[in-house]
Design a protein around this nucleic acid. Sequence first.
DNA 1: ATTGATATTGATAACTGTTATCAATATAGA
DNA 2: TCTATATTGATAACAGTTATCAATATCAAT
Lengths: 150, 150
Amino acid sequence: MLNEFDLFKDFLHKQRLRWTPQRKMILDIFLSFEGHVQIETLHEKIREQDPSIGIATLYRTLKLLVDCELVEAHSFQNGKKTYERMFHVRHHDHLICTSCEKTIEFEHPLIEKYQVEICEAHGFTMKSHKMELFGICDNCRIKNNTLSFL
Amino acid sequence: MLNEFDLFKDFLHKQRLRWTPQRKMILDIFLSFEGHVQIETLHEKIREQDPSIGIATLYRTLKLLVDCELVEAHSFQNGKKTYERMFHVRHHDHLICTSCEKTIEFEHPLIEKYQVEICEAHGFTMKSHKMELFGICDNCRIKNNTLSFL
DNA sequence: ATTGATATTGATAACTGTTATCAATATAGA
DNA sequence: TCTATATTGATAACAGTTATCAATATCAAT
Ligand SMILES: [Mn+2]
Ligand SMILES: [Mn+2]
Ligand SMILES: [Zn+2]
Ligand SMILES: [Zn+2]
């Protein structure tokens, strides 16, 4: 079975782009993280392993990974992008605590269905969507209530 | 009945902030637009009327208008924020053509309901949400198909 | 109306995340 | 091995926004 490295190599080859040690290392390190990763986090880890890799290469490689759909980029509230592995990961949306930034992933097939219906009703062909729910999580609510007695 | 100027004055007063000619003019000009307005558009119009108003004041005032919930800020795909009047405007979400940027507003009560349910199911108190659907509109699809014969 | 504490202003520097530029170097197909 | 060309790292540039600061305006208390 194909893995992410093979798929990336394949993608590069089809686009007449090249497989380089930098691209290998960046993918390697990216995959060593779980969930949503920031560029900065990746950059730190990469520097540990090889300080000579430039930040531009990191951005460029992530863009390629997004292009070939192995990775999805999110831009949540704070302006910083995060990157998420998408290979063998089912589509989901995000529920985010605005206080502690805790993120929960969820799926709701019916909402997905309605989204397509809405697009079609307006003559659009749906390409993608972004749905983020913002709220206060259990922990933060309790913490706040507790503190409010002080 | 209160209008946006009164509400803004009120808000400022409560926060011990001050009602200034600049703030009045910016609100005035903002309200003269329909739909989603970009800072740049506002800035141009303002310069026509009074070139001495600085861009920083424009940003500052819009932030205040967002704080007092007369205005909502969106950051769609392109990185530029747009601002939308929210007073006496019902909540809605957006369907955006990724080709021509045409934007359609819609409401879907059932989706709204599910969003709250999802939050509650995870112990969150929902504060807000962002839902944007991206697609290709009628016009752009037809244009593309036509061109593909060339 | 005057006063004075303090909020606001405009000009502009700084900042942040990202992208463009470019000369040196590496890749990979022939 | 050769060579066209893709890639690299350093760094400048960029865009949108925010911070800084000295001059000025506001407004509640007098
Ligand atoms: Mn996720
Ligand atoms: Mn709208
Ligand atoms: Zn939380
Ligand atoms: Zn379109």
